[in-house]
Design a protein around this nucleic acid. Sequence first.
RNA 1: GGCCCCGUGGUGUACUGGUCCAGCACGCGGCCCUUUCAAGGCCGAAGAGCGGGUUCGAAUCCCGUCGGGGCUACCA
Length: 471
Amino acid sequence: MRADQQVMNQSPRVRFAPSPTGVLHIGGARTALYNWLLARGSGGTMVLRIEDTDRERSTPENVAQILEALAWLELDWDEGPLSQAERSDRHRARIAELVEAGAAYPDTATSEDVRAFKRAHGNAGYRGEPRPGEGAAIRLRVPNAGETVVDDLIRGPVRFENRLQDDFVIARGDGTPLYNFAVAVDDAEMRISDVIRGDDHLSNTPKQLLVLRALRCEPPRYAHLPLLHGPDGKKLSKRHGAASVQELREAGYLPAAVRNYLALLGWGADDDTTFMPTSELIERFSIERVGRASAVFDERKLRWLNGRFMREMPLDAYVEAAAAQLEREGHPEVPGDRERLRAACAIAQEKAQTLSELWPLVRFLFEPPLEDPKAWSKVMRDGAGPNLEAALEALRTAEPFDSTTLEAELSALVERLGVKARDVYQPLRVAITGTTVSPGIFDSLAALGRQRALERVEAAVERLRDRSDSG
RNA sequence: GGCCCCGUGGUGUACUGGUCCAGCACGCGGCCCUUUCAAGGCCGAAGAGCGGGUUCGAAUCCCGUCGGGGCUACCA
């Protein structure tokens, strides 16, 4: 029953403990991922705990967003979500214990009093004495002697002198427990074996250790991950482009690619492996190989990785992902036409690096050609008209109307005409899509189907004829 | 200011004393392939913050310095 006995030599119990004061950030997502990888790779248990003791900033909407982001990332948990605020009774009970034992005391000192004390004592930690009173906060008694060392899994031992540590507040004047106390109690009572969290908590850890010691609880192991920075070297924030999981999703990234990329931010399997499916991540991940230096989130590499995942995905899964994306983007009618969507995916799969690049490539299959004056003026000139007319014949007679046959017919045509391939293919591309960029031209024609292809090319021929008549 | 963490090319990283005049990947430049754009192939530019030590020998160990970051709340 004792917490320390449970912790030792068992499969790890980890927790992801976001505070719902905003959306789930990329840094938070990576923390969640590392916890999850450790749990899944070792038959351990993942606990999700919402640290909602900040009464002002925590909102149910933020909780919902975080849960949604985790769901999208396909990071699941075994216990929770638990609400830290709802465990307030436990925290209060523990505080009462400490006060009774004299390990904590009520104090009416204000923060100004504390500052004054520190000034007068050469920056030493604040030491008060029991001063019960209206609105007295509860402070933990911190020993003057010795040091508290955090034996970090990633950084090794980190030492903090106790004499510099304040008798810090563990409960507000109204009795509500504070973060550093609640966390320590929860980690102990939930029998967490490994606390994996951001580096920004390293300085908090001695406080939590002090709480645990006062409570006579065995502390968990700690691993503090280096923080993620933006391209400017500053702490990652909303100003740095797609900084939240939500934005990553909207930008058309695949969860598996995001997992792979995030795993690589601060951790590497070995010298030359970058592309790793999640199963491999789970198998190879280890806290010991996590680096100590902060990393910069670089969306360009994510894009590349995402492209690889997109290309190597089975078509069925690709179609599902595409359908979800197109629906999100406001083309709800497209996913309904599975047959055509599938054809579209088949020809665009190797072209798109993100799901959001899909629609521009395949919209010509679902809508009339785009009006792109630049494409026309660039491509539709000189021999474009005659070349298209000649191509019309090939389109009419190609049998079957598939990519292979079209390629054979059209390249034979190019040969006969004695022109450059692009002088036939680009006008065709503009005729059927309205733009100069599309999937392979033969694939595109075949996917469009003979009838619509003919209609579009005929219309383009007409248009070119009108133009030369009047000009 | 105090305490703490970190420092290999633009970015992520490999290598913890010799096999490294530093490898891989993204990005960048060039070439090839080629029906556009991608993809793919080949080639290339680009790095150990700086200064001292220790050592026969340092990216790797020590010290200093500079730089970046975090914490420093009756926030989490």
